[in-house]
Computed example of a mutant assay.
Amino acid sequence: MKKKIKMLLVILSLLCLYSCKSSEEKTKEREEKMLDDYVEMLENEFNLTLDKWEYYVKEEHIVGGNLIKNPESYVLYKYDVPKYKSEFFYDRDLIHVESPPTKFVFRDGSMLIPFLKYEDIEKVPFFNKTGKSNLLFEIIDKYGLRPYLWSQLIYDKSKGNDFEKIESILKKHGIKYDKEHNMGSFGKWACGIIQKEWNGEIFTKSLTRHNTTLTVMDEECGDEVTEGKFERMKIYGKKFEEYFSKPRKFEEIDWYEFMKYNDIHPIIVIYVADSPEEKVKKIVKEIRPYYNHKDFTILFSYYIENEKEYIEKYLW
């Protein structure tokens, strides 16, 4: 009986210790556990080590599209936030989860790639981890590939790039960053082609509308995904699977090598509002010598009036 009473007292003491913690302490504890979970998932699923001391998690109220506040969204931040030289590049997106990443269950393929059914995505290497793969892509985009692209590659003259010269050409033509027009990055993998104008019927295989770093220029793959097929995706899933088959440290990844290994061809979108088409063509011609088209594409988005409506078009 005495042992039972002692055990009960111990349990009550532990409960008291937790209940006596302030709400700030409890929140901090949940945030630290979620950061550990981010790190654990990446290591267990993808052989990828994230230096947890360079990141932190905050519990925040994220307002979704349905305007319902979720009080348990955990946002992954980096202490050393990338700062971009050019006004054309900025971050608005957040990486967040509502449940521990290690406990993500197999989701419908549409969570990762539209049109693919549950039983289809299950057959595609790497992508079949759905929610976990998607989270990895978001982390790669925001804290790996995008900072490399926007801070280093586009300025790397040894690779044929000079964005400072490109930006001076843009400013010469009066093209400025329009903060009212959201052209932020879209942190998902996609395959397809660049269309010359907006078309709802073919948008599903188009690689336009957003800055997109994790893109593969493959029309056949885009066609297949639109039709709910996945044979071409298997090729790229196998590449990702092979790339992460050996242990890697996220902060030490050679992002140029990563791009080439996985056939990644980023797209940089610059919005030029209602500039006349001839002006856009002139800008495209002027900047063409100042970047390596084999590594990425700079795409200009603009509108032209067609009868009673405006059509969004693209030039590169």
Rank of each mutant, 00 (worst) to 15 (best):
W150V: 04
N211D: 11
D120E: 06
E87I: 10
M34A: 03
F127R: 01
S73Y: 03
M34V: 15
F300R: 00
E242D: 11
P71V: 07
D51H: 09
K196N: 13
D108C: 09
K282A: 14
K129L: 05
F137T: 00
L299Q: 00
E252T: 15
K52R: 10
K279N: 11
K188N: 12
E307Y: 12
W150Y: 15
C20F: 06
E257V: 08
D36N: 14
G187I: 02
S158I: 14
Y79H: 10
I267A: 04
I283F: 05
S158W: 04
L112F: 13
K285N: 11
K165S: 04
G174R: 06
L299P: 00
K172F: 05
E219Y: 08
E167D: 15
T49Y: 15
Y303C: 02
C221Y: 00
V105H: 14
L315V: 11
E286T: 12
S23D: 09
I154G: 07
K103G: 12
K239M: 08
K260H: 03
E24K: 04
R92H: 02
E219N: 12
V57Y: 01
L136P: 02
L145Y: 03
S168I: 08
E252Q: 12
N262R: 06
T212K: 09
G200C: 14
K249V: 14
I169C: 05
P125V: 07
F126N: 05
Y243V: 03
G174D: 09
D218N: 01
L67I: 13
E257T: 08
V269I: 09
N262G: 11
E54T: 10
K179F: 04
E277T: 11
K239T: 07
L299C: 05
K3N: 07
E227N: 10
K179C: 02
I283N: 00
T49Q: 09
D162Y: 14
I267K: 09
T297S: 12
E119L: 09
I121H: 00
S22L: 04
G222E: 14
M259T: 00
E231S: 11
I264G: 00
K188W: 15
P82K: 11
M111W: 11
K123S: 07
I11C: 07
K234S: 08
K142C: 01
L170Y: 14
S22D: 07
K229F: 04
I139N: 05
D274H: 08
H61T: 13
V63E: 10
I270C: 01
G237D: 03
K172Q: 12
T27N: 15
N161R: 12
E122R: 13
H61W: 10
L9Y: 04
F230G: 00
P82Y: 07
G174W: 11
E167Q: 13
V105Q: 14
K132E: 09
V75F: 05
H181C: 13
M183P: 00
V81S: 06
D93H: 13
K171N: 07
G160T: 06
P266R: 01
Y18F: 12
K308V: 13
A273N: 04
A273G: 06
S99W: 08
W316T: 08
G222P: 09
M1F: 12
L116V: 14
L112H: 09
M217H: 12
Y56P: 01
V225Y: 01
